[in-house]
């Protein structure tokens, strides 16, 4: 039981730390692509770790927490993807040092089979 409690607190703190770095990244990163990275990947991982920590501390809540985690896994990456795609359609956001642009070459930029 004590191990579960320690694991729960460690998960809570690490989830909170990752969420903090995500907020810091959104403030400090230089351009929209880096901010997207901080704002989507880190929040997904941070929230999942946080909820896993709650699950360790309150095992009876695990079914509900599992549903919340499932919802975050389904929605957070998709919103990040949609945002990145919307930014990609704006030519002025294109970085100068871009070497390869697979999405533009694939012909799928505007959706299915253009």
């Amino acid at each position: 039981m004590i191990f579960l409690s320690i694991a729960g607190h460690v998960l809570l703190v690490s989830g909170g730390f990752i969420l903090f770095t995500s907020g810091l990244g959104i403030l400090r990163m230089p351009d929209v692509w880096n901010r997207l990275h901080a704002g989507t990947k880190a929040t997904t991982l941070g929230s999942i770790l946080f909820l896993a920590g709650i699950g360790c501390l309150e095992p009876t809540w695990i079914p509900k927490l599992f549903l919340i985690v499932l919802f975050i896994i389904l929605t957070n990456p998709v919103s990040g993807h949609a945002l990145a795609r919307a930014v990609h359609m704006r030519p002025e956001e294109k970085p100068d040092n871009l070497l390869e642009d697979d999405l533009a070459e694939s012909g799928f930029e505007g959706g299915e089979e253009q």
């Binding site: 929605t75 998709v78 993807h81 949609a82 359609m89 799928f108 505007g110 959706g111 299915e112 253009q114």
Partner: peptide, 11 residues
């Protein structure tokens, strides 16, 4: 409005 990507359309 632009075409949705495959990922968004599936979601």
């Amino acid at each position: 409005a632009s075409e949705p990507s495959r990922v968004v359309a599936f979601t």
